[in-house]
Amino acid sequence: MNTFTIARKELSSYFRSPIAYGVMCFFALITGFFFYSAVRFFLQQSLQSTMMGQSVPLNVNEWVVRNVLSNMSVVGLFIIPMITMRLFAEEKRTGTIELLVTSPLRDFEIILGKWLAAFILYLAILGISVLNMLVLFAYGNPDWRPMAVGYLGLILQGGCLLAIGTFISTATRNQIVAGVATFGVCLLLWVLDWVSSFESSKLFSVISYLSVTSHFESFARGVLDTKDAIYYLSMIVFGLFMTARSMESIRWRA
């Protein structure tokens, strides 16, 4: 119950500052652009293949949806720091953290409430891109199932990065520092995947496993792989657990 009270307060403050609108706007523009270029490319290719005399039409899911979803997962790395940076940093700066900590709330209620608010905002942002996808249904007949799996992947990946961002936000009282650090970590978790192309040693495959984007691949293809889902879920739990530890340390050090 308290969790929802906190979440409601966080959500309302998101929509009272320009952050929510700014991030939504940014996301709508950039996914719109990706969608447009993917569709243009798809049209070109199908025109070509028709001229070449191929009878089987190209797959919309494979050519448009998959590309757009992959791009969106990368865009997520940029918007998540903007969502999480203020969660705890702002409360620490203004001193309102004292109100929360001295209220009869449990730490996990505060943390979960804040994460939930960030998560709901993220869902709302993702919702914008669904409009693009609806256009595909209006003019074609894409398969909705792999698309739903792709969105599930985006949701899970977002949840995991949000948990990490929430944790980083507890470490500082400066929003900008929290934002930049979260962005750095997100970026790192993205590029870690690249080492897998260097060589296939045990160490590199472990490093590559840690990358958030590598686990998104299967979702983008429309394959629901429990291994990847478990990775995301355990990262969410891990991030929130670290947040709880960090909040405890705020008390001991304060």
Binding site: K9, S12, S13, T96, I97, L99, S103, P104
Partner: peptide, 21 residues
């Protein structure tokens, strides 16, 4: 420093505090 959220209205803030207390 009073632990207030500047973007909230007074009544809304007291409602929030009342709930968490």
């Amino acid at each position: 420093t009073p632990p207030v959220y500047p973007e909230m209205e007074v009544i809304e803030y007291l409602d929030f505090v009342g709930r968490i207390k």
